[in-house]
């Protein structure tokens, strides 16, 4: 597999705007790291991803009862908002 790193696509997916110099440096770093981890992608295993438990102790999920608890007040919820109005968080338009 090629280590050609499409930095523009990846930074878009990750929602991080990058400067040109940053792009070059990061592409270079990431290519080095990817080359190192390449050893893994060449391995073959007799199991599939769906068989792997995500919990390292291979624990199963315990569900929680449907009982309401109060946590944050309205004021606490908005206390860190960069901008808010009429009890809502305000952001620049999300529809272009």
């Amino acid at each position: 597999m090629s280590n050609q790193f499409d930095i523009d696509n990846v930074s878009k997916l990750a929602s991080i705007e990058l400067e040109e110099t940053e792009k070059n440096k990061l592409s270079q770093d990431l290519s080095i790291i990817l080359e190192h981890v390449q050893a893994i992608s060449n391995l073959e295993f007799d199991i599939s991803v769906d068989e792997v438990f995500i919990h390292p102790l291979e624990k199963q999920l315990n569900l929680q009862e449907d009982v309401v608890e109060e946590f944050l007040t309205h004021e606490e919820a908005l206390s860190n908002a960069p901008e808010s109005k009429d009890g809502k968080f305000i952001v620049p338009p999300s529809m272009e």
Binding site: I7, S11, L30, V37, I40, V49, E51
Partner: peptide, 28 residues
């Protein structure tokens, strides 16, 4: 940023199986 981009790449379409997927299996 380096780690976010690396992780984004390892999960992205066409690379998941070769990177993140393989890492999960190797971890197991």
């Amino acid at each position: 940023k380096r780690r976010i981009l690396l992780g984004t790449y390892a999960l992205s379409a066409g690379y998941f199986d070769a990177y993140y997927g393989k890492a999960l299996l190797a971890r197991k």
